[in-house]
Amino acid sequence: MAKIMIVDDDPNIVTYLTDIFTDNGYQTCAASDGAKALELVKAERPDLITLDIEMPEEWGPRFYRKLAQDPELKRIPVVVVSGLAGNKYAIPKAVAALTKPFDPDELLGIVGSVLGR
């Protein structure tokens, strides 16, 4: 079963994403900022990450830079889910960027095609 890591500081949105993914047969784990996400990604080794951009403590782009420096972690695909306009420029290598509020079917479509289902 594929595992998705959710990185977002808003617990309501973490719950929402967790609901969507578990209802569609994925495992999930979640972190509320970039620093915690980096620890979690090493422990959980997820198959895909959804990443918010603006968070307290450590923002999404910095987390991504650290992720990309690790040869084992940099292959994990990242989907940006953020309220910031122009967020597709924040992490150019992200496989997709969705703007909040997002369409859950679109998100599931992207995740499905990236994970080969």
Binding site: I13, Y16, D19, G83, P101
Partner: peptide, 21 residues
């Protein structure tokens, strides 16, 4: 505020989704 509102609307979507499911 547009950033804040977007977050709230997404969370609202999340609540609605949870009620429906």
């Amino acid at each position: 505020m547009s950033h804040g509102i977007k977050g709230m609307l997404t969370a609202l979507d999340g609540g609605v989704y949870r009620v429906e499911s």
